[in-house]
Design a binder for these strands. Structure first.
Lengths: 210, 210
DNA sequence: ATCAAGTCTGTAACTTGTTCTACATTAGCG
DNA sequence: CGCTAATGTAGAACAAGTTACAGACTTGAT
């Protein structure tokens, strides 16, 4: 299988870390996720993360130059998980639009299990300013890869890529409205299904319903 | 009928303000917009807003219980402007989808003139947590009203309302990617046009088929 | 094994959002 | 008019993100 064509997600120009450094990084990310899962964005306090990870505050800041960087990296980490999980059990729908909607709903259910963690990650993602662009972009590319996987589009047209971008927009924004209690789970579902109709609209050839 | 009528954008249970209070509120909102226009989200510092508005810090917090509340209120204010401006020169497109896209692009161009102000308002909007839900909801209703106006849909179907919600999602999220420098103006335009195609899909009378 | 350069640690300081307190002013009402 | 509660003012105090720094520890090359 060509299962690793788009699978290289790590930032490219990172000098290799020693084993202990890799371990520190992991402890930090785990501590971050754990604190986030408990109390959301506000509960991820840099001093607490440092202490929980057994690392000095200055070190934490050397690894992640801001709280936002840390949480975006945490999201990267979680997305990685999700992506491999999804690859193991691909969506079953007959039509691309269905498969994408199913995939996103599966991801959504995963987030519902840890709503506080979702809160921390999504808020960080949308609050990120230019200094975090590369990292946010990595998250975005991961999300795109997941959606394209679900579509089964090897060679997406520019039109399809636009549709995917719009789907991502909707996905993020719908999550936010859900997290802030302004939309129900049912409404998020409807929004996702609605936007996925765009995929039919942009299929390379005629939609050819079956 | 209660004070909560469809076009009433002000929070309902607000005791009437005296003239001096109305003036203070206005000075605060103006100061906020001015500081935001200069340096974006970070430049809106509560002490500075208070000083610029000629008001004590405690008073500022009595009027707006947090920086996020303040910036969301600022957005409400600006949207109000935009709405009345748009009503004066309605979009000219022949088809609802075109008119909505035109309207959003007009709003987008307005934001481009004050990108820093846009940054402050949009970041506040998406960062807002549950405590700001009512205010964010007001902004959302205003946006919905603007889009429905452009569609010319007096009696929108539930399907159309879903489409409008998805358009709003795309609008907010596309703005964020633009503000953080991850998408070009051209790309935002494409995304808006792409999502507006959903309106055709959900028009009450459909084209042939299915 | 040794040395230089780079990393970590612990801790204090600084910034800005937010809260608190003590006092002054204002608004509404008898 | 004169009182009382609400509102406003000035400024200190507190919280959490971020930065700074001196000293200890790895690490990698010689």
């Amino acid at each position: 299988m060509t299962a690793e064509s788009r699978a290289d997600h790590r930032p490219s120009a990172t000098p290799p870390l020693t084993e202990r450094q890799e371990a520190r990084r992991r402890r930090i990310l785990d501590a971050s996720a754990q604190l986030a899962a408990r109390g959301g964005f506000d509960a991820v306090q840099m001093r607490e993360v440092a202490e929980a990870a057994g690392v000095a505050l200055g070190t934490l800041y050397r690894y992640f130059p801001s709280k936002i960087h840390l949480l975006v990296a945490t999201m990267q980490d979680q997305l990685q998980h999700m992506h491999t999980t999804l690859r193991k059990r691909p969506p079953a729908g007959a039509v691309p639009a269905e498969r994408v909607a199913e995939t996103l709903m599966r991801a959504f259910r995963a987030l519902q299990r840890e709503p506080q963690l979702a809160d921390a990650m999504v808020r960080a993602l949308t609050f990120a300013d230019r200094s975090v662009s590369p990292e946010v972009d990595t998250v975005s590319r991961l999300t795109t890869a997941i959606i394209l996987d679900a579509m089964g589009a090897e060679q997406p047209t520019p039109e399809q890529l636009s549709a995917v971008r719009v789907i991502e927009h909707t996905w993020h924004s719908a999550l936010i409205t859900w997290l802030s209690g302004r939309a129900s789970i049912a409404q998020v579902k409807i929004d996702i299904e609605t936007v996925c109709r765009l995929i039919d609209l942009t299929a390379p050839r005629r939609p050819a319903g079956r």
